[in-house]
Simulated assay, not measured.
Amino acid sequence: MLNRVEQIRADEKRYHDFIYEHHVLFEEGSWLHKPVSMIQGTLPSLLDIPNVRVLDLGCGVGRNSIPIASEIQKNHGKVVCVDLLDSALTKLERYSQTYGIEHAIQPVKSDIAAYSFPENHFQWIVAISALEHVSSVQALTGVLEKMKRATKEGGVHSLIVNSNVEERCVETNQRIEASIEVNLPTKNMENLLNKTYRNWNVLTQTVKPLSFNILREQKEVRLTTNAITLVVKNERPQGDGWHE
Rank of each mutant, 00 (worst) to 15 (best):
S110C: 05
L223I: 11
E181L: 13
L144D: 03
T151E: 02
L230P: 06
T172D: 02
Q123N: 12
L230A: 03
E167W: 09
E220I: 03
P209T: 01
I112W: 04
S179W: 02
L192V: 06
H157K: 06
I160F: 11
T172E: 09
S163K: 01
S136E: 10
E153H: 08
K208A: 13
I160D: 13
P118R: 00
G154L: 04
I180P: 02
V143N: 01
E93C: 12
R168W: 01
N164A: 07
K187P: 01
H103V: 08
Q205D: 15
Y95K: 08
N173D: 12
Q138K: 15
K146P: 09
V161W: 07
A113S: 14
I128G: 06
R198C: 11
I228F: 05
C169H: 10
I101Y: 04
E167L: 08
L210S: 09
V143P: 00
H157S: 00
V182D: 05
E93M: 14
A150V: 00
L203P: 02
Y95M: 02
N120W: 01
V108I: 15
T141Q: 15
W124S: 01
E132R: 02
I125H: 00
R222C: 11
V182T: 05
K152S: 01
S136D: 07
N194R: 13
Y197Q: 01
E132I: 05
R175N: 04
K208N: 14
R149L: 14
E217K: 10
Y115S: 08
I160T: 13
E132T: 12
K146G: 02
V170T: 09
N194I: 10
S211F: 00
N164G: 06
E217R: 11
N194L: 08
L140A: 03
L192G: 07
V108C: 02
